[in-house]
Design a protein around this nucleic acid. Sequence first.
DNA 1: AAGACGGGGCT
DNA 2: AGCCCAGTCTT
Length: 340
Amino acid sequence: MDQVGIDSTAFRKALLKWYRAEGRRLPWRETDDPYAILVSEFMLQQTQVVTAIPYYHRWLERFPTVEALASASTHDLLALWQGLGLYRRAHNLQRCARMVVDKWGGVFPRSVEGLRELPGVGRYTAGAVASFAYNLPAPVVDGNVARVLSRVLNLQEPIDTPVGQAILWDAAERIARCKQPRLINNALMDLGAVLCKARRPACGRCPVRRVCRAIDAETLPRKRPQPPTQVRVERYWWFYDGARVLLEQRQAAARWGGLWTLPTLDADAPSGRETFVSLRHHIMRFLIDLQVVRGDHASLPQPPAASRLWQPVARLGEVPMPTPHRRVIGLALAAESARL
DNA sequence: AAGACGGGGCT
DNA sequence: AGCCCAGTCTT
């Protein structure tokens, strides 16, 4: 029994036995290439495994090496990330590639401290690359591991606080301090994903049930109360000349940075026009009411501003766009057809 | 400590 | 209709 409150040796032994028999086979576990691992970890930030898998394959086919990614265009980058969300990840991933190429001659740092220098690489991602690519004894605490450890420890402290996080990272560090950190970290995540799930955990089949201190597993982990969802209205222009749609590129630092959307309609300006089509979608804790107002394309300056583009409807697929805008454009085109 | 950043899967 | 998910960075 160590400071974690559990017997780490027994925990690891039972966990690994289970993992060897029932662990998941995932594409990024077939490699020890730090670049491929890094790609997978960026995609998996706040993103479910099943969602990331097709993106991972497409990405490595298009950008098989760190050099290929470093020299890619922003357009190609975003075209491949389109639909995954949290687009800053794509920009940061390329900044990582450029840093590795320019600063370290194409060779990834071999330590957690070095990996942490990369943009968009926090404690979790650095630990993931270090353990998965190099088998270094670095801890990882993601949503799965946090859930598993909070239950094993019967942790009553909320996990989304500095105190809760410190306890989890301490525990993960002790557990990962062993001969097989790569396997242990993968096994911890798989236990969370396969058995120790958020709802209806399969405690009866759990390999570490004799070590686990959870009294009521399903009530863990505890979290601080979340603020309620806020409704927010956003309005955009619909300019359509019968064959082309006017798009606007988002500022790099803004939401959807670098992607193309319908032109924004200044929320303060009372247009007095009625909504042509609308769509509701969630972004984090906001419910966005996306309203589209039909404008007169003949009144627009020619040519359009540099950040704007008349895109042929038949080639909308070539332009990286956030999913809600792609959807609402479909609605608007249908509405145009209905007007005839 | 809180806010910003997306989208899709699951119950 | 909520809640959750292989998080990170800025303020």
